[in-house]
Design a protein around this nucleic acid. Structure first.
Lengths: 336, 336
DNA sequence: CTGAAAGCGCTAACAG
DNA sequence: CTGTTAGCGCTTTCAG
């Protein structure tokens, strides 16, 4: 166990603790001779500075919290990889928080920034409302958002245009000749759900198609939810030939139901998801989906938040919109 | 921002800091009246105790580090879920460390336990050798291992019998009528690789088959590595009809190569992996693989480590062997 | 270039 | 039941 403190090292090197601290942090010049002596003592005692003491004194923990809905979903994991990619070089650690798709959990985790366990918090596609988020930022807590636009000078955010992406998907489906297109939304209170639904409706409107409310079902953004929702849809006997799932997880549920019911994708049922989940290109047929530059989104946002943490730079550009791209794969391309 | 300290609260409630601390931690009785007053002050000032100060004082951070090789691999993500499942109720946070398949990284992360950023460290299928791990434990750092047996009284560990699992896989392949079975190992220095190879050889021996060294290739435990290794294997023209990949990621690489070369699975090439990665049951044909109770493994190990952290219980049972099960799916079941 | 000393915010004796 | 006080281990003025 490492029990030695800076005092022990100082004693052994016959210098003051201040000097030891100086060589530890290269904070100011120390004569080469004393420096060597201190270094030697440190090595001999196998001394490691106590991070808690350092944190307390410097009011920094050098760790960033990252709240995601579900660590098992590759979409989040890739964003985390991106965050990590910028955090590591800046010597920040990452505290991952798995909110298990629950808003209360998300809120609970915010105490980590309040009690100074982390220096800042990155929320990925949070369930918290903009208002709640803004409230936190105004209390002075450094937070950043991935996957949502939020109009506040203190909150860096990076997002894609959900309405546009969704609009593109539905247009594609219409072009493929589908008349009735179902929509699987996520939890009703998620902004993503709402925006994707908006794009869906816009497409219908543009194409002069009627909006049929029965064609909408909520699948809670997860596989079983998607499965159930799709079965409910089917039970209504509306005769739709395509489903747009607001994320890939729900699309996976659709695949499962189709397999059980021997509905062939895409000839009898076209399917499109969103997220470009890792699984989407392994399943058969490959799932058409909307890709976002996840890694980059995480990396860039982390950079901005770290900037803010260190220089209190709020003036800089803080809001980033990145493009998403529709990947048309086997699940939605009708055989001629 | 939360700038108020316990002193401010004390002042406002007209009590001493000790009393505030008492109500905060319910560490000893406080009269209902003062308690209410303190609580009121806390609420009014929107006070949150500073975790760093608390940590320093109590020499506890209530966080556990978890080192995994790659957070994107669902195998690790599920273990993390298990760890989380026991950590949360015990009020521990989890600091995820993504070692990016590199041993130096793993070692670097160990500084988190040395410098007291975390109270203990869980290593999942580490690249560090038993010796290195034991060294750390003997220096007094609380560590636990998931996915490997390690014979040391201070190191809780949970593992499956790799030799046996691998033995089972190869037996299955032999029963399916395969004569020449290739083996894709991971990095040469990983214990898992070694043990899985051992089981492979044992099966051949038991069945009176010759061991052909050319049938072994290293795929580094990842998809592209598996792809490359499989292509190298093919290039040797040995005429094997089955591959046992030491993990599912490499098996995915085999699938990719087979698709490119129009080799049909399983009729022309049987494939079996290990891990029961989430993707394995979505690909077509479904991948035969070896399942481990990942969630349970994480949960149980975390429990043991936390026990150790709190009570210094080293006497308790510390090493757990759990059963893995061979899941025979489409990729290795020869059509009659 | 080096040392002394004042805390960072909290907990836990100890005394009352 | 409540208050006083001594640190936890470190960084950082301020003097020298």
């Amino acid at each position: 166990m490492n029990d030695s403190t800076i005092i022990d090292v100082a004693r052994r090197a016959k210098v003051s603790v201040a000097t030891v601290s100086r060589v530890l942090n290269s904070s100011s010049a120390v004569s080469p001779k004393t420096k060597t002596r201190v270094l030697k003592a440190i090595k001999e005692m196998n001394y490691t500075p106590n991070a808690m003491a350092k944190n307390l004194r410097s009011s920094k923990t050098m760790t960033l919290g990252v709240v995601v809905s579900d660590i098992l979903v590759s979409y989040y994991a890739e964003i985390i990889k991106g965050i990590e990619n910028t955090a590591i070089p800046f010597h920040y650690n990452i505290l991952i928080c798995d909110a298990q798709n629950r808003k209360e959990k998300e809120l609970e985790y915010m105490s980590l920034v309040k009690n100074r366990t982390v220096d800042g918090m990155i929320l990925v596609a949070p369930l918290l409302t903009n208002q709640e988020l803004i409230h936190l930022a105004e209390e002075g807590y450094p937070i950043g958002i991935v996957g949502r636009f939020i109009d506040h000078p203190n909150i860096p955010c990076i997002y894609t245009d959900n309405v546009k992406a969704s609009h593109e998907v539905v247009n594609h489906l219409i072009e493929e000749g589908h008349e009735k297109i179902a929509f699987l939304s996520g939890y009703a209170d998620a902004v993503d759900s709402y925006e994707r639904l908006e794009g869906y409706m816009k497409s219908l409107r543009d194409a002069g198609r009627p909006f049929i409310p029965e064609l909408i079902e909520n699948g809670n953004f997860n596989e079983t939810g998607g499965y159930d929702a799709f079965r409910r849809l089917l039970a209504k006997n509306i005769g739709f030939t395509a489903v747009f799932a607001a994320n890939d997880e729900m699309a996976l549920g659709v695949y499962k139901a189709c397999e059980e019911l021997s509905i062939e994708i895409p000839s009898q049922m076209a399917v499109v998801g969103v997220d470009n989940n890792r699984i989407s290109k392994y399943i058969s047929p490959k799932l058409s989906t909307v890709d976002q530059p996840k890694f980059t989104m995480g990396a860039l946002l982390a950079e901005k938040l770290i900037d803010q943490l260190n220089d209190n730079v709020y003036t800089d550009k803080m809001r980033f919109k990145v493009d998403s791209t529709l990947l048309i794969r086997g699940s939605s391309h009708r055989k001629k």
